[in-house]
Every structure is written in C-alpha cells, then in structure tokens.
Amino acid sequence: MCDAPACKAAGGGSSSGTDGDGLPASIFVDAGNVEVHDVPMRVITRPLQSSVDRAKVDDFKTKIQAGVQLTPIEVAWVERPEGSYYFSFGGCHRWAAHTELGSETIPAKLIRVSPATINTYLGSSSPFRHTAT
C-alpha cells in the first residue's frame, strides 16, 4: 500500500518488465516492485516545459475515455519534515491528455528520491538547493 500522503493504491497496471505495450519498462524503475497509484494531479509539479504532438495527445484522450489503462507516469517523491513533494519530468503526452480531460488523478509509479536528486535535475531552480540530502 502507498504510504505517500497524496495517493492511494490504484487497481490494475502492469507488473511485468514491460509497459503494457510490450515496450521495455523504465530504466529507473523495477516495474515488478513498484505499485501504481492514483496520484492527485494538483500535487504534482512539472518543472520542465513540455512540447507535445497534438495527435498523440488526442489519441491518448480517446484511449483514456474508452477505459484503456495507459502506462503510468513516473513521479519522483521527496519526503521532507515540512511535507511531501512530487515531481514529474516525463509522460508529457499522458499528462496533457489527463489535463485536457479534467482528470483529478493520474496513474503513477512513485519513486522515492532524495532532495539531492532533485537538485541534480533542477539546479538552482530546485526547492531543495540548500539541502544536501
């Protein structure tokens, strides 16, 4: 069960080494050991600007509306004394589709990371830039 404050365990999802379409799973996550959760979109920060293919977003919207389970996005989760932080760097087409459909949650795999990891990705834009761990 998810112990992240912002999510609850979701049903379904792939637990194999592929993403459900037969493609290799993320190199960052052992897909067999990571639960899929319904994470509220409002708590996820997307710090990098996305460029999307309109046709792909529309295709994903159609699939979501038809009940097709798309590959979950990956969300970096940082726990701090002041609260939890959630960052998504990829999955821009799935994110755009869920946003345009007005979804309150998005299927996601939570990857617990340190503030230092976020510092590496965001540099001086990181909310943890003065935190070493």
Rank of each mutant, 00 (worst) to 15 (best):
V68D: 13
V78C: 10
D38Q: 13
R42E: 14
T133F: 08
F60Q: 12
V113E: 13
S103T: 03
I44F: 06
P24A: 07
G13M: 06
V113H: 09
P81E: 06
S126Y: 11
A76L: 15
E100H: 11
W95N: 09
R46A: 08
G11I: 00
F28L: 14
P40G: 02
V52R: 10
D58L: 06
A66Q: 15
S88P: 05
F128A: 09
K63F: 02
F87K: 04
S84H: 15
S15P: 01
H130T: 14
S84W: 09
H130W: 09
E82T: 11
T133S: 15
A132L: 12
K56Y: 01
S84D: 15
S50K: 00
K56H: 13
E35L: 13
L70N: 10
F89E: 02
Q69W: 11
C2H: 05
Y85C: 08
H93S: 00
P5M: 02
R42A: 14
L48P: 00
M41Q: 04
F87C: 04
S15K: 15
R42Y: 07
F128L: 03
G123V: 07
A31R: 14
F60P: 00
D59L: 11
T99F: 03
A116H: 14
H98D: 06
N119F: 09
S103H: 12
V78A: 05
T45P: 02
L122S: 06
R129S: 14
M1C: 07
Y121Q: 08
G20W: 04
S14V: 08
H93C: 06
A66C: 04
G90I: 00
S126A: 07
R80A: 13
G123R: 13
S124A: 14
I73M: 08
A96N: 08
I111R: 14
V34N: 10
N33F: 00
S26L: 02
T99P: 01
G123E: 13
S114N: 13
T45V: 11
